[in-house]
Design a binder for these strands. Structure first.
Lengths: 209, 209
DNA sequence: AATAGGACTGAACGATCGTTCAGTTTATCA
DNA sequence: TGATAAACTGAACGATCGTTCAGTCCTATT
């Protein structure tokens, strides 16, 4: 599924073992990265945390950046894998959108440390790999875009054709904001209230009055 | 004005010279930081760029993080100094808000590299200094909050008391999004269109129908 | 049991970089 | 003009860290 996993070379032959070890690496690295940041985390720490030597670690990756790719990829696909199956496009477009927003925002709340990490460390990736992260985010945007387009087509929503994409981005950013502005928001609002308020104002905005 | 400048110690006695040198340091550092990131930029590069030796640089700061504080502070106060005097609370609240949004969004467009930098490197600051950055962002939020509150009081806007703060945050994040989602937005919209669309939808949402 | 090769180990390497400090230059003022 | 202190210099220090590789361990095959 994920592109990067296929592209990162390894000196180990056993494909299955590569999968197992890389999962261990990601599990160890994701906590350290989120807690200390990419640059402050050392290869030694990661190796120690999943109980292997530095040398072995380097049998499964080429560089430290490879680990960052694996981690970013893991976070992205975790979010996507949990949103996608829960989202359904029904006849009641307003309800579909409301559901999708709620699911997405709750996952952001749950994975807020990871979301913030993605925002902050994307720049540590090479140009090539950064493009991959953006592509992944565009996949998520498309989910909301589809719901919106469907709602417009069947007459539930009233959005200028050209603004559908923008609305999809707004929905996503207003969710992610719950994570990266938590220092201000989470003192003043509960998650439930936040979801309710934001989704109400989004729906108000696009529903025919 | 800025807290940090007073708090960073220096071995140099001449207060005026400190100001001058620190401005040189910030000017040199801001470009390098924005282009290469904080961790990838070396003290040597900064010193070389403003034409002084590493030793001299260390007469004006204590650690590398001090430079980061100076730079973050510089970016924040630049934005604030340019927004604050241009914003005025008039009788026409809707127009006041529209103006404030336009001014803020245009500055974000102009300083987008700096805004992204702030988002990404805040985490490299110590807890103490991060709080300072958040406080600075709250100052900006207050500008919008005041306009909104004023509009509600005189009956132009209809916002639940408890949601005024949230609306202010929404306005700011939808602006900052122009910078940190430029990979998607700036291909599809012009700044003028972006400002128009976003401010229209914000105003629609809070204006009594 | 012998052997081959895949998987693993961690000490060592080399490069980088923040920071310091002994010494030099410059400016000030008696 | 000479003395004093502030300002400046950059080589050197010490610590860190990504990466490598010569050698060991383990497992499967004959």
């Amino acid at each position: 599924m994920s592109i990067s996993k296929k592209e990162i070379e390894s000196s180990v032959k056993d494909k299955e073992l590569i999968e197992i070890r890389r999962k261990e690496i990601v599990n160890a690295a994701v906590d350290l990265f989120v807690r200390k940041g990419f640059h402050r985390t050392t290869i030694r720490e990661i190796a120690q945390k999943f109980g292997m030597s530095v040398g072995t670690l380097y049998e499964y990756i080429r560089t430290k950046e490879d680990i960052l790719i694996l981690v970013c990829d893991y976070i992205n696909s975790t979010v996507r894998m949990r949103v996608k199956p829960s989202v359904e496009i029904t006849k009641d477009s307003a309800q579909s959108l409301k559901n999708a927003i709620e699911i997405y925002y709750r996952i952001i709340d749950e994975l807020q440390d990871y979301i913030i990490f993605l925002y902050q460390e994307t720049k540590s990736l090479s140009h090539e790999n950064r493009k991959y992260i953006f592509k992944s985010e565009e996949d998520m945007t498309r989910i909301f875009k589809n719901i919106l387009t469907h709602g417009v087509e069947q007459g539930s929503f009233k959005i200028d054709e050209k603004n559908i994409l923008l609305t999809a981005h707004n929905i996503m950013v207003l969710g992610q904001m719950w994570a990266f502005r938590r220092w201000a928001l989470q003192k003043n609002y509960t998650l439930d209230r936040y979801i309710e308020t934001q989704s109400k104002s989004i729906l108000d905005q696009i529903t025919k009055h």
